[in-house]
Nucleic acid binder design. Structure first.
Lengths: 228, 228, 228, 228
DNA sequence: TATGAATGAGTCTTCATTCAT
DNA sequence: GATGAATGAAGACTCATTCAT
């Protein structure tokens, strides 16, 4: 009730001081767009597509509600833009990974560890993906930017597997795409479902000790599963 | 988990039992409650917590909108009831699994396969869990019925691992709880994210061929990772 | 207070000013806000806070229901705005009273009479105050606009009493604030409770004759009570 | 008025006697009715007619919601019963007042003081009256029990005035009914509006000191106004 | 580019009341 | 006498979106 301010004054009534009478909020399209996108990422991630509100996004971004429609056309358009940006961030961090100089087993371990650690501390991508899958990828399907943009990790996995098989340390016949899904899933599920799992298992899966244990378990599991 | 499809039909109406003619709107609390729960399971699963509407649930269930509040108190109360029921169905199907008579490797393969297959054809549990994790298990935390109700599969895994180690076919030192998370995650992620993955990988992950390939990959991966 | 009757008519269509033809639904925030406030004053006064409905207010004002939330944030925000406006109208009519040139006794009689007459014909202020007191002034307490805004009549009373005591016609030692409460209460109770009193006493307290009798009684009572 | 103590006990669960194991809630029509009435008095007084809810009253009284309709027919019927009971309690405490043996001035002072004190500590009657007046005494008008049941204080006032005039201490020509309204109003307004007045005057009108001051002021005012 | 005003359908929830037992 | 089940209308409030400036 404290913020009631019963219409005492809605409009700030920015009383026209002499110097900058008109430019209350600078006109910077690039920045406006980016701030909306950032705010939308937070809101969509935290509340899902249906749970997030245009108003909340607008006020979080500091921009006018109408600007969202100006730049993104609709709530769904904004959602798609958020999703695409999230994919691009993820892919961008993946391509920065260099494993060529490591031996196959160490390279594999590094890749698994990198994947695991990428989920720590930020549920944004997980939440967006889960929401989009709830909607059966309806939006993503229509994205020219993302369609078929599979992870660079698959290429890396192919190389590592080849080198491992050639060196006689890895068994042959493992499909890199399946393996990628497995590596991702081993970490993804742990983080995606960490809250319900923590209740069910009566453990705090976010603690440092649990994270360390899980990371080691996942890396061990993958490596052992590949040994010749 | 697979046989969830409860409430897919509005008012079963199949009651033509001999005894009672049944008036148009029977006074049958048990049935009313169940039909609401079934309808809510469908709606919540299909649209998430925020996306599902009380009105849609009411009209799908054939019950009055007010009855939802009569029986479940609130949307959140209804959500929790749906979630608890889903857990109970899942656990119930798991305890029906008997692996004692299989050799360790076959038992492990059967358990993995069972888990994988439990997700086929029904996304209900996955969607509910993802939604609940979006809300950080806020509701589940307060459920006396589910708290600490971990999967019976963990106990089975412990037994299988022990037998395998004793028989010299499995390596020692694998934590059953971690292994359970891994087995679940290997399948869960595939199904949970199948729509976005299908777009990204440009494959139809729901096809029979893909399912067969994935099932085999997951079982192989787990078994290989455990071999001594 | 007496001229409150604002908003008794839906949409004051009297604007036939020459300049603008005025579209069907003009975009005129000032006017929209004012029409909502007027409609709310009528509804709140007639039915109390709980009894009044947002829908009724909206349709009486001719504005969209959503506009109420746009301008006033909530039902309580609207209530507070209505209350504040009522206080301001009351205070404004009081300050227009000039008693300096009258002898103490006549001035006192005029002040009492003015107070009494201010309640005739419009229960708005009484009903709002009673409702707000039912809620223990919960809203008013947080009004910066009204807090401590006591009646200008108290100042006038102080002056009249002083003059009267100096002239030897009034006894000393009468507290102006207490006296103000008394003068207000003598009239307020009569009007506030006129319906139940009319039933109990089996008289029509709204009739001209009764009003005249009461006005005289109150003025006499106050004046006699102050005589030296 | 002060000893109303309506609804002081919620749900009298004291029955744990051995004999009647089945009759969880004993069938005691008298008691059920009384507990509903008490609960309704509290709720109606605290929230007004529109603000009070049948459910809240039912659960406060410990009785079934349906019982309210059984005993009182409707919400309005219940309201009227509450109102009538309040009037009867008030009148009953008034008739207990004996002033015949006091000198006119002391008797008058006692009557005023009694009236003032009757409002301390319990707003029930005030709130009910204000609500009923908001509805223009719509219910009371149809009460055979209350119609024309004016206060016994009026008769007492007549006697005191007569004795005072005869003794030469009171002026003649004061109408007892008007005087009664004045005496009531002087106290009623102070208590009825104590919350808004406290805000406006920036004083705590409920404090002991303020009450004492007001009581004295009111008694003085009445007595002075009557002196010959 | 940017913004507040405006909207109608929608949200969850509670209302007073009646029915069947 | 007493109770839980059931109801349709209404409650306050929010939704994504478009209009006018």
């Amino acid at each position: 009730m404290s913020e009631m301010a019963a219409g005492s004054k809605l409009r700030p009534l920015e009383d026209g001081t002499a110097e900058a009478p008109r430019e209350v909020r600078a006109r910077d399209p690039e920045r406006t767009r980016a701030s909306i996108l950032a705010a939308a990422t937070v809101e969509f991630s935290a509340r899902g597509f249906a749970g997030a509100g245009i108003d909340a996004i607008a006020s979080r971004s500091g921009a006018n509600r109408r600007m969202i429609y100006h730049y993104f056309g609709s709530k769904r358009g904004l959602w798609l833009a958020v999703l695409e940006a999230a994919y691009e961030r993820a892919r961008m961090s993946e391509v920065a990974l260099h494993l060529d100089e490591l031996a196959p087993v160490e390279a594999m371990r590094a890749l698994v560890t990198f994947t695991f650690d990428s989920f720590i501390g930020d549920r944004t991508f997980i939440n967006l993906l889960n929401s989009e899958n709830l909607h059966q990828a309806r939006h993503l399907k229509e994205s020219a930017r993302v369609k078929g943009l599979h992870s660079p990790l698959i290429g890396m996995l192919t190389a590592i597997l080849d080198r491992g098989v050639a060196a006689g340390v890895f068994r042959a016949g493992v499909d890199p795409a399946q393996l990628w899904i497995s590596i991702a899933g081993l970490s993804y599920f742990y983080f995606s479902n960490q809250f319900t799992l923590s209740v069910i298992l009566d453990r705090n899966l976010q603690s440092k000790a649990e994270l360390d244990e899980r990371r080691a378990h996942v890396a061990d599991l993958i490596v052992h599963s590949l040994l010749a």
